[in-house]
């Protein structure tokens, strides 16, 4: 598939190169939207297939810069569809497994790279982000790592710009309180 150039100032990357640059943050959003690594990869792949089809058919407007907002929107739609398909009983079973994992203090599908110089505070932030309510964490993920505007976030999540901004602030506030709690208990 030939890469589409947005304008003369934007470097057009090949398909694989583009994935190497932007894939991790999109997969992070997919992980946030799903309950397992496998589901995250599935919905990410589905979203990419839809993008490839639209581009190949000449129906996609905008260049590579427009791929990211489109993919955020598509990943969320795929996650919603997947959630409807999964049986309620299976979801309850999976939530039980997730609860057990959180009680053990470990997660089998980490969202972030683990660096050797990562401090304790960073570890608490990672865990706190994964434990945030979905409606807050999805906005934080899109804003921090996706560099999306509140307008883009609102469009992808089908919410108003103000709601997107509010949820972002509430998300950061929840993280701040979590850090404060860790400080007060002496864990940080």
């Amino acid at each position: 598939m030939s890469a589409v150039s947005l304008n003369s100032n934007t470097e057009t990357l090949g398909w694989r190169a583009w994935l190497e640059v932007h894939g991790s943050k999109l997969l992070l959003f997919a992980r946030q939207q799903t309950r397992s690594e496998q589901d995250a990869e599935d919905i990410f792949q589905e979203a990419l297939v839809k993008l490839a089809k639209k581009t190949a058919a000449g129906e996609f407007t905008g260049g590579q810069d427009a791929w990211i907002p489109y993919l955020y929107t598509q990943i969320r739609r795929e996650a919603i569809d997947l959630g409807r398909k999964v049986d309620r009983r299976d979801r309850r079973e999976q939530i039980v497994v997730e609860d057990q994992k959180s009680l053990q203090g470990t997660t089998s599908d980490p969202w972030f790279e683990s660096a050797s110089d990562m401090n304790e505070r960073a570890d608490i932030l990672k865990q706190a982000l994964q434990e945030l309510p979905d409606k807050f964490s999805e906005v934080v993920v899109m804003k921090i790592w996706g560099d999306q505007t509140f307008a883009d976030i609102g469009e992808a999540l089908d919410i108003s710009i103000n709601t997107a901004a509010s949820r972002y602030r509430y998300g950061l506030e929840a993280l701040r309180k979590r850090l404060a709690t860790q400080r007060s208990t002496g864990e940080l």
């Binding site: 598939m1 994935l19 894939g23 990869e41 490839a52 969202w111 790279e113 960073a122 932030l125 790592w145």
Partner: peptide, 29 residues
């Protein structure tokens, strides 16, 4: 907190998964 979150790197795509995604344009074709 924003700055600290920015410093966290999302886990990179596994090579095998990246290889799989690389074939999508050909499959669509």
């Amino acid at each position: 907190i924003e700055n600290e979150l920015h410093s966290l790197a999302p886990r990179a795509l596994e090579k095998s998964f990246l290889d799989q995604l690389e074939h999508i344009p050909a499959e669509v074709g």
